[in-house]
């Protein structure tokens, strides 16, 4: 592209303030936008390709190679990595665990967040303060707060075991138990996510047409009746959005797994994204890391595409009838 010369001319034109309606006006109607866009976007997109676009594409390609250890020569093996993925139970279990753990975390945070949002939506004194307090875990660093959880869960001098001991009970070695490992991962994720879920629900609740509530009370609906007949149907499109975005991020949870159980015991708490890390950075099995990432990406893309086709086809069904009973605001 030979836009550079013109780009410079544009840059000189920009700060000045002459009114030259003749040439520039004609020129600007034709090319100015494209040139300015090129000048602005080209460097930004070049850097984006460098740190994001190219590595992502490279990651997809990696899945089709055998590449173990950085010093190794990559060898094209077609779909072998993907075949291995579905034959090796440690991978399929990790994938399955990602899905149900993600689903569980999503359900717990969204349900409790919904309850909280209903309460925060009441005209209570101090509700803004409660909202802030609930949201705080979301802004803390996972690395830092998982370490606090680890102090609670320490075998020898952990807070919970010290309490158990003072009650005369046997201390629990949390790290030896799959169930406890999963339990604490879920507790941590819920702790961190509930405030953000409440905020999202709150925004959703406030977007429900308020005149419907008045209509409902005139029809004699009580609080529960309004919840059932106004709030829940009114939230449907937003609820789907919140559920899908939460699910997509929850099936990619790995930091709390890394810091709380580190995948143990015996890899029984591994989730797929955690496994990608383990393959990539500890075992240097770059091909399998790439193949697993591609599978994760496909799952996320499939969920997203399903959601978009669903929401565009059902928007008319759920949102437009809602407006009808409302009296014009």
């Amino acid at each position: 592209m030979s836009h550079d010369g013109n780009g410079v001319a544009l840059a000189q034109e920009a700060p000045g303030t002459p009114r030259s309606p003749g040439f520039w006006k004609r020129f600007s109607t034709m090319h100015r936008d494209a040139l300015l866009a090129t000048v602005i976007l080209l460097p930004m997109i070049a850097f984006w390709l460098l740190v994001s676009g190219f590595p992502t594409l490279f990651g997809f390609v990696l899945g089709f190679f055998r590449w173990i250890g950085i010093a190794d020569q990559p060898k094209f093996i077609g779909l072998d990595n993907f075949v291995h993925f579905f034959k090796d139970p440690t991978y399929t279990n990790a994938l399955w665990r990602s899905i149900w753990l993600g689903g569980l975390v999503t359900c717990i945070t969204l349900l409790s967040g919904f309850g909280a949002a209903l309460l925060m939506n009441l005209p209570l004194w101090g509700k803004g303060f409660y909202r802030s307090i609930w949201y705080i875990p979301a802004v803390t660093s996972t690395v830092a707060t998982t370490q606090i959880f680890n102090i609670f869960l320490d075998t020898n001098n952990g807070v919970i075991n010290n309490i158990l001991k003072s009650l005369g009970k046997e201390p629990i070695v949390w790290q030896y138990s799959v169930g406890w490992g999963i339990f604490w991962i879920v507790v941590y994720s819920a702790w961190k996510g509930v405030g953000a879920a409440a905020l999202l629900w709150l925004a959703g609740l406030q977007s429900v047409d308020q005149s419907l509530y008045e209509a409902a009370s005139m029809d004699g609906a009580g609080s529960l009746g309004k919840l059932r007949h106004v709030t829940i149907p009114g939230l449907k499109p937003i609820a789907t959005y919140i559920f899908i975005t939460s699910l997509i991020s929850a099936i990619q949870i790995y930091e709390q797994v890394l810091f709380i159980t580190n995948g143990g015991p015996y890899g029984k708490t591994e989730v797929l994204v955690f496994r990608i890390y383990r393959d990539g950075f500890w075992d240097f099995n770059l091909g399998m890391a790439g193949a697993s990432s591609l599978i994760m990406a496909i799952i996320v893309i499939v969920i997203t595409v399903f959601y978009y086709s669903w929401s565009t086809s059902s928007d008319r069904k759920t949102t437009i009838p809602l407006k009808k009973p409302g009296r014009g605001v």
């Binding site: 990651g59 990696l62 890390y277």
Partner: peptide, 16 residues
């Protein structure tokens, strides 16, 4: 591109 999980890029970024 925002829907692609970024974990996929971590190892390629290391290599790059």
């Amino acid at each position: 591109t925002q829907m692609i999980p970024m974990t996929i890029a971590i190892i390629p970024t290391y290599l790059e």
